[in-house]
Amino acid sequence: MSWLTPQVSAVLFAMFQALVILLVAVLLGAVMTVVERRLLGLWQDRYGPNRVGPFGSLQLVADMIKIFFKEDWIPPFADRKLFVLAPAIAMASLLLSFMIIPITPGWGIADLNIGLLFFLAMAGINVYAVLFGGWASGNKYALIGAMRASAQTLTYEVFMGLALMGVVALAGSFNMRDIVQAQEELWFIVPQFFGFATFLIAGIAVTHRHPFDQPEAEQELADGYHIEYSGMKFGMFFIGEYVGMVLVSALIVTLFFGGWQGPWLPPFVWFSLKTGFFLMLFVLIRASLPRPRYDRVMSFGWKVCLPLTLVNLLVTGAVVLLMAPE
């Protein structure tokens, strides 16, 4: 074992961590598809999928088998290259963002000093998945969905970044670990409540979750940008949406709810409990709120959320300047 120098073992451990986090993220996204259906059932006074295996626990396996063996059809009128590329972008950009999330003090893939900005960059790239997917499908519903998606995502990304800047100003760093450590005494939900509220809204909008699912809008657009996708390509879009949900939940926990911090229980348990809570909240929001009209979504973003984040940032900046030791 002479080759197992501390350096090599550190690299191996980092790779192991990365693999585990990647697998857990994808699996969690897949599991959420079933959990969401069960929870929606609970909140609509029905059961949801409970046939496959005990209490429907094997539903996920059944879905996976089905989606793997579906015909992977590419429409003859589609733009082949982009059609194949789009789901990969959807999945990859979201999974890359998991890199910056510190799960416990010892776990987490990259300790980037631009952590938060990296997430915003990946969220920016993620738009292309929808945009190219919708355009390459050669379908008018898909195109409308793609256009809605890109307009909505651009709108909400603007103040998503601004909502996070309050946190950055308080913590004095873009680094996620520094942000978590800055919340040792007080979670940022208290001083940054409006930042939290707007980030939650923006997070829902950017992942195209209800009630901001106009890009997909089953009832009007028949699934929007992924209408022509089938088989595993659709699966990547589908799981990607849930992975995005997990990602936004984890980010909210890290940025506003003290990450792994909490009394008595070990850090990992705290982190997963908090993340789980926000995943439930996402589903609850889907279960209760109707989809607003499209122009309302845009005007709400520009006329309510953007001014709110700007004022929030202004006040935060002023307070930070006043409190700063000279």
């Binding site: 609970l42 909140w43 006074d45 059961y47 409970n50 609850l284 929001i285 209760s288 709120l289």
Partner: peptide, 28 residues
Amino acid sequence: WLFTGTLSLLRTLWIVFLHSFRKRETVN
């Protein structure tokens, strides 16, 4: 309208959450 709207949204969320403790209508 912003405050009433937000309150109404939160109330909706709470009411739907209370459905966790209702009897399920489905017949297995």
